[in-house]
Simulated scan of single mutants.
Amino acid sequence: MRESAAERHDRLLELVRGRGSARVSELAAQLGVSPVTVRRDVEFLANEGRLDRVHGSVSWPGGGEGVGQATQAQAPGQGSRELVIGMLAPNATYYFAEVIRGAHEAAAAAGARLILRISDYRPQEDAGRAAGLLAAGAEGLLIAPGWKEPDDPVEHGAWIAGLPVPTVLLERRGVPGRELDDLDRVCSDHSHGVLLAVRHLLGLGHTTPLLVARADSPTAIAVRAGYRYALDALGLKSPLPVIGSVSAEADPGGFEQAVQALRTAVLAGQATAALVHNDVDAIRIVQRLAELGVRVPEDLALVAYDDEVAALADIPLTAVAPPKHEVGRYAAELLIERLRAASAGGSGGTEVAPRRHVDLLPRLRVRASCGAPSDTLRSAMSVQP
């Protein structure tokens, strides 16, 4: 049976992970394919943030030290055995690149080995990917399922509760009252992030901001829920329903419809401010609104959600920044704590510490798009005589 590209990618990653770095010619020989094929694979994986390329060689992200490479440093009193933890993430780019980096750094600091698998937002394949991590030696798992739809936690999540090793959910929440709600988890508090944005815009004198958001990821769904929470907490009502956004690449017509709905609200005086999820959509919306004669921030104050590329826009975007790096770090530290406690307790009946639901608070980074002085300018102004 012919090997798929995904299977070849997994083999290539395993080779680089084990060595820390390798030359393209060496990888081609090991994989039994041409150097051209390996270069193409390396380019693909590097673009996803899963490998680094340096002068004909490839290395694991993080300065050549493989996530899966044995780390010599050990935590005090832990002996020489290397702890192995597995991580399942929906992708290795954009939002989750920083989550992975945080987990990697925490694992390395603890003398543990982190191995990674990517689900590409195919929740039906999550269980198989997790099984692969266990087969590769993972003693505990960090799980960010590839859920996209509201029903996915129920339809594609029950298997997680049955895993035979300590497990921590990250940036995902189970359905209250069901099995996954009993697991350890570390998440960004997106409701608090939305509340920060709404309060900031109200404080600048704007009417209740509109929400422009997708509905195709757990973060998008959480932002929508957070918007309802923020309005209720502040005793507000939205002047219009949430404007549903979509990817401009996947659905140009749907994206244009969202932009036109926002433009109409601005011209009709129904909105002077908006919160947009996510950064990429916000940048495109600002560009399209300018073509339609609506200026940011003069006609519309705008706050983006995610803060991945918001600062790079022509008009730097004020943005809510979830603590992605810290989510990865806290989750890895919690999992390692669980594993070491279990190892120390052995069969002696040591009481297990209570499960934890850790919510980390996003920050609001103020830039030009909301019409207020940026954080940098505010800092400069605060030290003026």
Rank of each mutant, 00 (worst) to 15 (best):
S245H: 01
L116A: 01
E3Y: 00
A107S: 05
L204N: 02
R378L: 09
Y95C: 05
L204Q: 14
E125W: 04
A225G: 03
V276S: 03
S191R: 08
P385L: 06
L210F: 08
I115Y: 04
L231A: 06
D279G: 04
V242N: 09
V327T: 04
L169T: 03
Q78L: 15
V84K: 06
D184I: 12
V165T: 05
W159H: 12
P35L: 02
D182L: 09
A282C: 15
G20S: 06
I221L: 15
L204D: 08
E337R: 10
V280M: 14
G132L: 09
L275I: 12
V212N: 04
V327Y: 05
A110E: 01
H357E: 13
I85R: 02
T264L: 14
A248L: 08
E43L: 15
L51R: 15
H357F: 12
E256G: 11
L134Y: 00
P385S: 10
P252D: 02
I100K: 03
A5L: 11
L231T: 09
R214M: 08
V16A: 09
S59L: 13
A332C: 05
P354L: 06
E249N: 10
V280G: 05
H104R: 06
R363W: 03
A138R: 14
L360R: 06
R355A: 15
L31R: 07
S188N: 12
L201S: 05
V33A: 07
L377Q: 12
A265V: 13
D120M: 07
R129P: 03
R365Y: 09
L195H: 14
V366E: 05
I160F: 07
L292W: 06
L292P: 01
A301S: 15
S238V: 02
L195W: 10
T71W: 03
S34C: 03
A144H: 01
V168T: 04
R23Q: 13
A158N: 06
G137Q: 08
H200K: 12
S369Y: 02
S347Q: 11
P209Q: 04
P241I: 05
L201H: 07
A28L: 03
D299L: 04
L236D: 00
I85L: 14
A248N: 01
L27M: 11
T376N: 01
H104K: 06
L236Q: 06
P176I: 14
E105I: 07
L360A: 03
L289W: 09
A261H: 01
E179R: 08
A28Q: 10
S191N: 00
A261P: 00
V212Q: 03
A319Q: 12
V16E: 08
Q30H: 04
A136W: 04
S188Q: 10
N278H: 13
E48Q: 15
V296N: 05
V246A: 08
A321D: 10
G328D: 02
V54L: 15
R11F: 00
E14G: 12
G132R: 05
R81N: 01
V280I: 13
A136T: 10
A97D: 01
Q124S: 12
T167Y: 02
R19W: 00
A313N: 11
P239M: 11
E308G: 15
P176W: 09
L262N: 07
R11W: 00
R378M: 12
G79H: 02
A380Y: 05
V24A: 14
W60I: 00
E14F: 03
L202Y: 08
A161C: 02
V309R: 11
D281E: 13
H206C: 14
R378D: 07
A332G: 00
V296R: 11
P354W: 09
